[in-house]
Amino acid sequence: MKKHLSQRKKILQLQFGIGKTTVSDILKRSGEYKTIYEDNTTSARKRHDTGSKYGELNDLVFQWFKQARAKNIPLSGPIIQEKALELAETLDLTDFKASNGWLESWR
């Protein structure tokens, strides 16, 4: 078992160009790093409704945003605004304007 771990450390050293001590430290703290990563993934984040009359729309845009990012689709402000307008239409929000102010607030 110890020989296998030593080989694994050597491979990691060579692969990432780091020292033996650094590899050991990272492996010792791997559980901690995994927990931090899982706590910070977008699926774990909660969006808070700010009481906006467009709260449902904001949530739908965010769900779409997460799906697009998961598929590595590049997104920009205008693309998000266009999708928000489409979703607003399906929700019959006739007074909604996907303004730059809305976009900044949504972000």
Score class of each variant (00 low, 15 high):
Leu27Trp: 01
Thr42Asn: 14
Val23Glu: 01
Ile79Asp: 05
Thr35Ala: 14
Leu27His: 02
Phe62Val: 05
Ile26Ser: 01
Gln63Lys: 12
Thr22Ile: 04
Tyr54Cys: 02
Arg29Asn: 11
Lys3Gly: 05
Asn58Phe: 07
Leu27Met: 11
Ser105Pro: 01
Thr22Tyr: 00
Gly101Val: 11
Arg8Ser: 07
Leu12Ala: 09
Asp59Asn: 13
Gly77Asp: 05
Ala84Tyr: 04
Gln67Lys: 10
Leu75Thr: 07
Leu91Arg: 02
Asn40Gly: 09
Thr90Ile: 09
Leu75Tyr: 06
Ala88Leu: 05
Leu75Met: 13
Lys53Gly: 13
Ile26Pro: 02
Arg47Asn: 03
Leu85Trp: 06
Met1Asn: 09
Gly101Ala: 15
Thr50Leu: 13
Glu38Ile: 00
Leu60Val: 02
Ile79Ala: 13
Gln7Glu: 13
Arg69Thr: 10
Leu93Gly: 02
Ile73Lys: 15
Pro74Gly: 07
Ser76Met: 08
Trp64Leu: 08
Leu5Ser: 09
Glu38His: 00
Asp25Met: 08
Lys2Phe: 09
Leu93Cys: 03
Lys20Cys: 02
Trp106Glu: 03
Ser52His: 08
Tyr37Met: 02
Ala84Pro: 04
Lys28Met: 07
Gly101Thr: 15
His48Ile: 15
Asn100Tyr: 14
Ile80Asp: 03
Thr42Arg: 12
Thr22Asn: 04
Glu38Ser: 00
Ala68Phe: 03
Leu14Gly: 04
Leu27Ser: 02
Met1Val: 13
Lys53Met: 10
His4Pro: 00
Ile36Gly: 01
Arg47His: 06
Ala88Val: 03
Pro74Glu: 12
Asp49Met: 07
Glu89Phe: 14
Gln67Ala: 14
Ala44Ile: 08
Gly55Ser: 14
Gln7Pro: 00
Arg45Val: 11
Glu38Asn: 04
Ile36Glu: 06
Glu82Gln: 15
Gln67Tyr: 11
Trp106Ala: 05
Asn72Glu: 12
Thr94Tyr: 11
Arg107Phe: 11
Ser30Ile: 12
Ser99Lys: 07
Ser99Tyr: 08
Gln15Pro: 00
Trp106His: 08
Phe65Leu: 10
Val23Met: 02
His4Leu: 12
His4Gly: 04
Ser24His: 10
Leu5Glu: 12
Tyr54Ile: 01
Lys2Cys: 10
Gly77Lys: 15
Ile11Val: 11
Leu93Ser: 04
Gln63His: 10
Trp106Asp: 01
Tyr33Leu: 11
Phe65Val: 01
Thr22His: 05
Phe62Thr: 04
Lys53Tyr: 06
Leu14Asp: 09
Ala84Asp: 02
Thr50Phe: 05
Arg47Ser: 07
Ile73Asn: 09
Thr35Lys: 13
Leu75Val: 12
Asp59Pro: 01
Gly55Phe: 04
Lys2Met: 09
Val23Ser: 03
Thr90Glu: 14
Gly101Lys: 15
